[in-house]
Amino acid sequence: MLKIIISIIMVTFIWGYLWVPMKIGLNYMPPFLFTALRLLIGAIPLFIVQAVRKTKLFPKKADWGKLIIMSTLMCLGYYGLSTFVMQFVSSGLSSVLVYTMPIIISVPAHYFLNERLTAKKTTGFVIGAIGLFLIIGPQIKHLSFDRTVLGEDLIVLAAFFWACA
């Protein structure tokens, strides 16, 4: 059990910290170029692994439509939009807001994936929604719709694209 807890803590810190290099990288290049390079650099080891394992490099023709939809949702909708938003919102707030994806996906999963909303899931959904409101609420309360609020809304939209994918 301790090993699991330590693993969860490590993943939390690593995934949370990844937003800092993104914010720094935006000082040197535009957001969509940064995202494209990030995904390309990540794809190269995957292609090498496929070549070493001698598996097919490209999918079957029947799978291309689904892959294009998934790629658009993930690469443009999630990665591209979340990197773009980093220009307006702090890296810490971005990482918190984009990980609202489990809150966002809980309702569609109930209807499309037959994952029933149990009492525990509903409680988690409500607590998460309250937390999200506490983060975004002060700006909405004062109607100070500036670039930060737009960024917060767009990062939640990026989480929505991630949930759709």
Rank of each mutant, 00 (worst) to 15 (best):
A159T: 03
M70K: 06
S91H: 09
I6R: 07
G80A: 08
L33N: 15
I4N: 12
K54N: 06
E115Y: 07
S94C: 13
L46T: 06
C164K: 05
V49N: 04
G131M: 02
H142A: 15
Y17C: 14
A119N: 10
L132R: 06
I24K: 10
A109T: 09
M86Q: 15
F13I: 14
I140A: 07
Y78W: 10
F32N: 14
V107T: 06
S94K: 08
I135N: 02
L40W: 12
T100L: 04
G42D: 01
V96H: 03
M101D: 01
F160D: 00
D146I: 00
A129I: 09
L18R: 13
S91I: 09
F160S: 04
S90F: 07
Y99S: 07
L37I: 13
L132Q: 05
G137D: 09
W162E: 00
Y111N: 04
S82M: 14
G92H: 12
F84Q: 10
L93N: 13
L113F: 03
D146Y: 05
G65T: 13
H110A: 02
G124D: 07
G16C: 09
K61Q: 04
K141N: 15
W64I: 12
E152S: 05
K61P: 00
M70E: 09
V11Y: 06
K54M: 04
I155V: 07
L134S: 04
A129F: 10
D63H: 06
M101I: 00
M101R: 01
M10C: 13
F34P: 04
S90N: 11
W64P: 04
H110F: 06
A36N: 08
L57Y: 10
R38V: 04
V126G: 03
V89W: 02
T118V: 01
F133Q: 05
S94I: 06
R53V: 15
K60C: 08
G124K: 04
L39S: 04
I6L: 12
M29E: 05
I105F: 00
G131W: 03
S7L: 13
I155H: 00
V49R: 05
L33C: 14
I68S: 06
K120T: 15
T35K: 09
I103N: 02
I104M: 00
A119T: 12
V156S: 01
L73G: 00
L97H: 00
Y111T: 05
D63F: 06
I9Y: 14
L134V: 03
F145A: 13
C75T: 08
I24R: 11
I24A: 09
S90K: 10
A165G: 10
I44T: 13
S7T: 07
T83Y: 14
V89Y: 02
D63T: 03
L18G: 13
F125R: 03
A129P: 05
W15V: 10
M1N: 08
L67G: 14
W162G: 01
A36E: 10
Y99M: 04
G65P: 08
K66W: 11
K54A: 05
F88I: 01
F133D: 06
K120S: 15
